[in-house]
Design a binder for these strands. Structure first.
Lengths: 217, 217
DNA sequence: GTCTATACAGAGATAGAC
DNA sequence: GTCTATCTCTGTATAGAC
């Protein structure tokens, strides 16, 4: 394996395991079993190494899900795939890498850029499936697919950090989100006419609530 | 103002503005305009100072919302309050502080403890309102209040970090969550019988889906 | 491309005077 | 409680030999 790749790999692992505050040119180089100076030769700065590492992780991960996301035809499908995606990406440390660069974004433009890139890639990919699936659901016309995909991505990041300080609580949070997803998906199983009726009621009530709030201001 | 307080205050601001990677005994002491050695005299280590600072921020913030959360009687109320809470706590930097200690949890037990404490305080407080409000809604019997409160807290953390790398996207994500909340709340406006009918349909469909998934395994 | 050596800044932390 | 001084370590980064 080339030195460059060894560094990228080591940086990704270090980021996931020790967090952004725990990585340095020395520690990453030690992990990669290469000389410390090579970090600067190949990447210029430590932050740029981290950025490159996260971009690579994200590109790889997104590619492995592209086909499966393309096969999704219903919200229930999407939720099943989502659960799987969440579990594997967490286990691989990819979610942790994203959370860590985002946390470090305040002090480093390179990390901010990596975080933006990662969130963008994932939410664009998820959005493409949401766009196909949403029209048949209760949420059609109420939420926009892009925002929903972004919310899911943000939720994963929050859950990742929560898991790091309180795994039990994070599991409880995930369970609730799962239940809500299942409820929304459940409406797909009803006759289309019933779905339309419920959806239209919901939309009217939302409009009423919005109008009432407008009056209050 | 006593030195101890100046340090706590400076640490909270530094954490929110520069992130956990950007704080040091020296930078915090400079911000507080006190001597660097006093960090160690008063708090032992930098991490313990950060922990104390976050605990104080959380205790204060939770106290300012206690009464208002106690007044909540409907999901619509709770969502309105939630929006306000989210905005002000973000502006005060309290959400950023929480996100940063959680990101630093991997390398420091003190920060992990601070993160756990913060999430616990907030979700317990929110849970007390959710418990009262949930029975009247579509989600009654489907999601447990504690898990839902924890999910909301985790969501805030994720959105905070997202906002740091892509404010527009974070706003889009928040908008979608808002719409979903509004939809669920909208059912409160329907006649109780209709709510019960929809809820029971949803619950049966969820049970069916769960059974189907059980069969598939 | 890779290594050794090294400069230099900033970090955490302690000792001891006041 | 506070300040000065200082030790030691770790971090980034570069120069130059190979």
């Amino acid at each position: 394996m080339a030195t460059r790749d060894k560094l990228l790999e080591a940086a990704a692992v270090a980021l996931a395991e020790d967090g952004v505050a725990g990585v340095s040119a020395r520690t990453v180089a030690a992990r990669a079993e290469v000389n410390q100076a090579l970090v600067f030769y190949h990447f210029g700065t430590v932050d740029e190494l981290l950025e490159a590492a996260v971009r690579r992780s994200v590109d790889r991960a997104v590619a492995t899900y592209r086909d499966r996301l393309a096969d999704v035809t219903s919200l229930a499908d999407l939720l099943t795939l989502g659960r799987d995606l969440h579990r594997t990406e967490r286990e691989r440390g990819n979610v942790a890498q994203m959370a860590q660069v985002m946390a470090g974004a305040r002090r480093s433009p390179a990390l901010a850029s990596a975080g933006r890139y990662a969130m963008d890639r994932w939410s664009a990919e998820v959005e493409s499936a949401v766009v196909r699936v949403l029209p048949g659901t209760l949420l059609a016309g109420l939420v926009d697919p892009r925002g929903l995909a972004q919310a899911v991505a943000a939720g994963f990041i929050g859950l990742e950090l929560y898991d790091g300080v309180d795994p039990g609580a994070a599991a409880g949070a995930l369970g609730s989100l799962d239940a809500i997803g299942a409820m929304v998906a459940a409406f797909d199983a009803l006759p289309p006419m019933a779905v339309r009726a419920v959806r239209s009621r919901a939309r009217k009530a939302v409009a009423r609530a919005a109008a009432a709030q407008g009056d209050a201001r």
